[in-house]
C-alpha cells in the first residue's frame, strides 16, 4: 500500500443553507501528480481554502502525514509542509526576487523571529536561492522588484516561492492561468521538473495541462467528489464527459 500524505475525511463546509463542500473524503498519495478538476462553481476554491486553513470546515477533518491538522492555523500548516500557490499572483510587490525567496527560506528555517541578525547570513542560503533561480528560470531577473517582472516570470516566481517552503504537499491553483502562449511551455516544463517526492495536487481548467501532468484525476461536482481514477479512466468516463468535458473539445 502506498503512503498517503494528505487526506480529508468527510470534509464538509456549509455557508448557511448552501453546501459548498459535501462529505469529501480524499487521499493524496506520496509523490502523487494528482489533478482536481470540476466545472466552475464546483467548490474547488472552497476545498483549497479548507485544506490550507483559510476556512474552517463545518464537519470532517484534514490529515497531513497521519496527523490531524484541522485545528491548525494557516502558517502552522505551511510549517508542516502543506503549501499552496494562488490562481492570481500573490507576490511581494516591493521586494525583489532574491529578497522574496530569502525571506521565505528564513521563515522555513525558523529564523523569522531573529530580529538583529542580517537576513542573508544563513549558511547556504545563497546557493539555495541560486538553485531556485535557475530551476525556475529567474536568474536573469534576480535583482528586479517582483512588481516589475513580466507576467510569465511572475507566474514562475509564484511557484518558486511555494517550492522554497520545501513543501511535502504542494497545491497548485491553476498555475498556467493567464500565461501567454509563448511562456506556457516553460511553465509546464518547470512544473514537470518539480522534485518527485513532493506530492502535488493540481487544480486546473486546462485539460492539456492536466493530461500532460497528472497521473490521477479527481472530479469535483457541486461540492462532492464525483469520480476519481487514472487519466485514462477519467478521460473515458462517460458521466464525467457529460458533466464536465461537454463535447470533450480539449481531450
Amino acid at each position: 500500500m502506498t503512503a498517503v500524505t494528505l487526506e480529508t475525511r468527510n470534509l464538509t463546509k456549509t455557508f448557511g443553507a448552501l453546501m459548498a463542500t459535501t462529505d469529501v473524503s480524499f487521499r493524496l498519495e506520496k509523490g502523487a501528480r494528482h489533478a482536481l478538476i470540476g466545472p466552475n462553481g464546483a467548490g474547488k476554491t472552497t476545498f483549497i481554502n479548507l485544506l490550507t486553513g483559510v476556512l474552517k470546515p463545518s464537519d470532517g477533518s484534514v490529515m497531513l502525514e497521519g496527523k490531524d491538522i484541522t485545528a491548525l492555523r494557516r502558517e502552522g500548516r505551511v510549517q508542516r509542509g502543506l503549501v499552496r500557490t494562488f490562481q492570481i499572483n500573490q507576490l511581494f510587490a516591493g521586494l525583489n526576487v532574491v529578497e522574496s525567496l530569502a525571506l521565505v527560506i528564513n521563515e522555513r528555517e525558523g529564523q523569522g523571529w531573529r530580529w538583529l541578525k542580517p537576513a542573508f547570513d544563513a549558511p547556504g542560503i545563497d546557493d539555495e536561492i541560486a538553485g531556485l533561480l535557475s530551476d525556475f528560470g529567474l536568474d536573469s531577473v534576480f535583482d528586479q522588484p517582483c512588481s516589475a517582472l513580466p507576467y510569465g516570470k511572475q507566474r514562475l516566481l509564484e511557484i518558486a516561492l511555494a517550492v522554497a517552503c520545501r513543501p511535502k504537499v504542494l497545491l497548485l491553483d491553476e498555475p498556467a492561468a493567464g500565461v501567454p502562449e509563448a511562456d506556457r511551455k516553460e511553465v509546464m516544463s518547470r512544473l514537470a521538473a518539480l522534485p518527485a517526492d513532493v506530492s502535488i495536487l493540481l487544480i486546473e481548467h486546462d485539460m492539456d495541462l492536466v493530461f500532460n501532468f497528472a497521473n490521477r484525476i479527481s472530479v469535483l461536482v457541486a461540492g462532492a467528489l464525483f469520480a476519481e481514477g487514472s487519466v485514462e479512466e477519467i478521460s473515458k468516463d462517460q458521466r464525467v464527459k457529460q458533466v464536465y468535458l461537454g463535447g470533450a473539445a480539449h481531450a
Partner: peptide, 26 residues
C-alpha cells in the same frame, strides 16, 4: 538591524501581501 533581519523582511512581506505572507508560513 531590525529592518535588515529575517523579522524585518517578514514585515515587508506582510506589508506587501498579508495573504501570501501567511501562505509562506509567516
Amino acid at each position: 538591524f531590525v529592518t535588515a533581519s529575517p523579522f524585518g523582511y517578514s514585515l515587508k512581506a506582510i506589508r506587501d501581501n498579508p495573504l501570501r505572507a501567511s501562505a509562506v508560513g509567516i
